[in-house]
């Protein structure tokens, strides 16, 4: 990646440019170190490196250590549970919407596009609120489902938001396939629906796999929004109650951020890896590469927190 972008902007450097880069490097390193030092001093002055603050999080001998990490572990499980449910539901519903949109006529498409625009234009946190708090108020009782009201409210909120994004991803994936695929499938006598199911969707999913994984990152992050709305012990809520009890917000949120980053970074790398492998295998034509840059680029970002 980085060598590629360098090639766009500058040539291999000559002696003078190398010297300039060296000077720039020294200056930048000094400036960054200076910045780091200022931050470090500030943290140190306020006693943020003391074991009193860090102990419960990193010292297995600390009396609170076990309880803290049990809470965090539960939080991770709950976060993953909500994200996985929302993910599966939104892939299924999103695919249905995409297929409906592709197979309906021009008129029939309009309400569907309206629906997509509306759900895409709403903040996820509003949709999660509607799922968790408004649905029970209007008589939709989800508390009978395994996992309880809040989990399913959260899942519904996340699903409604993400299914329309998936619909767009799948649509872009189908649209990026060569036209011959569909024409050949129809010519062999498959019906429209069979063409979609047997020929187009499987290929679309393969090209769209990186985008789907990127969207999973968004869903994972968005599960934390429920903290503001109701009690569901996902990772952030757990961290919030830990720091409320221990009074060490900086340390707790640092650990939380690192956990989120670790999970999401791995997912992001996985998406990149698959994308590259597909590019190498020549499965993606230049056109999907373009959509892969736009639709998924737009989609994860179009996601929320």
């Amino acid at each position: 990646m980085s060598s590629e972008q360098q090639a766009v902007l500058y040539d291999a450097q000559g002696p003078r440019a190398r010297r300039r880069t060296l000077i720039g490097t020294v200056v930048a390193v000094l400036a960054l170190l200076g910045l780091a030092y200022v931050v470090y001093r500030r943290l140190d002055e306020q006693g943020q490196f003391s074991m009193e603050e860090w102990g419960p999080l990193i010292d297995p001998g600390n009396e609170a250590f076990d309880a803290v990490w049990r809470l965090i572990g539960e939080g991770i499980v709950n976060t993953l549970k909500a994200a996985a449910l929302a993910m599966v539901l939104s892939i299924v519903l999103g695919t249905l919407i995409a297929v409906a949109r592709l197979s309906l006529g021009r008129i029939g498409r309009i309400p569907l596009i309206g629906l997509i625009e509306i759900f895409r234009g709403l903040p996820v946190v509003v949709l999660v609120f509607i799922g968790v708090r408004v649905l029970p108020d209007v008589g939709v009782d989800l508390s009978g489902l395994p996992g309880g009201q809040v989990l399913w409210g959260l899942v519904i909120g996340l699903t409604v938001y993400n299914m329309v994004i998936f619909a767009e991803i799948v649509r872009a994936g189908v649209a990026s396939l060569p036209r011959g695929q569909r024409e050949a499938a129809l010519a062999t006598g498959l019906t429209n629906w069979q063409t979609m199911r047997i020929v187009l969707l499987p290929q679309a999913f393969r090209t769209m796999l990186p985008a789907i994984i990127s969207q999973l990152i968004v869903v994972l992050k968005d599960t934390s929004l429920v903290t503001f709305i109701a009690n569901y012990d996902e990772l952030l809520s757990q961290g919030e109650s830990i720091q409320r009890n221990l009074g060490n917000p900086i340390q707790t949120f640092t650990v939380l951020a690192l956990l989120y980053i670790a999970i999401n970074y791995c997912l992001g790398r996985l998406a990149q890896y698959i994308e590259r492998r597909q590019a190498r295998a020549g499965r993606s034509t230049p056109e999907p590469a373009e959509t892969a840059g736009l639709a998924p680029g737009a989609a994860p970002v179009g996601g929320g927190a």
């Binding site: 500030r42 943290l43 306020q46 943020q48 990152i217 992050k221 968005d222 934390s224 929004l225 903290t227 503001f228 952030l236 961290g239 919030e240 720091q243 917000p249 900086i250 949120f253 640092t254 939380l256 951020a257 989120y260 980053i261 999401n264 970074y265 992001g268 929320g304 927190a305």
Partner: peptide
């Protein structure tokens, strides 16, 4: 890779500590 919520918590609870 960090949820916006965590960034917000960090800003609002972390900075006052400093």
């Amino acid at each position: 890779n960090t949820p916006l919520t965590v960034v917000l918590f960090f800003c609002a609870f972390g900075f006052p500590e400093l």
